[in-house]
Each structure stands twice: as structure tokens, then as C-alpha cells.
Amino acid sequence: MDVIINGERRDVAPRSTVADVVRSLTDAPGGVAAAVNDEVVPRAAWAATPIAENDRVDVLTAVQGG
């Protein structure tokens, strides 16, 4: 199914979760946050949060700045 991950359209397996998407982008153990359609998904809920067709998933991390 098609979803938008960090602004880019991508094909992911059906029944993917937020945890799957995060894992596909980074293996960092911490310092990462995820949102689905602009709603923050707490880390503890990643594995239990499915994503649907056309969802916008953003995965963010701390970078140099300020």
C-alpha cells in the first residue's frame, strides 16, 4: 500500500505499523519521534499503531541546530 513517509510516497507492506516504518529509516535506540497525520504517536504505542493507505508518517530526530 502507498503511504507518505517523510514527504515521499512509498510502498509498504499491508498491515505495517509505525514501528516498522521507524525501523526502515533508523536503528537509533533513542532520540526519535514519530507522527501519523500530524498526531504524535508515543514510542510505547508504535508497535500497536497500524498505518493505513495514504497516511502521512513523519519520523524525526535531533540534529545540530540552534
Binding site: 532520540g31 513523519d58 524525526l60 541546530g65
Partner: peptide, 26 residues
Amino acid sequence: TVALRRVSPGAHGSVWDVLRRNGIRA
């Protein structure tokens, strides 16, 4: 201070690690 940006796959060495290693609050 640190900023928050979209993860770019394959990025190495994070500012978060640097701060934690040195006991600096982010």
C-alpha cells in the same frame, strides 16, 4: 540546544549521542 528534523536514512553519528556521552542536557 538541538533542532528536530526528518530522519535521513544512513546518517551516522548523532548530536544526541554527543550530548549524552558528555552528560549535557538537551
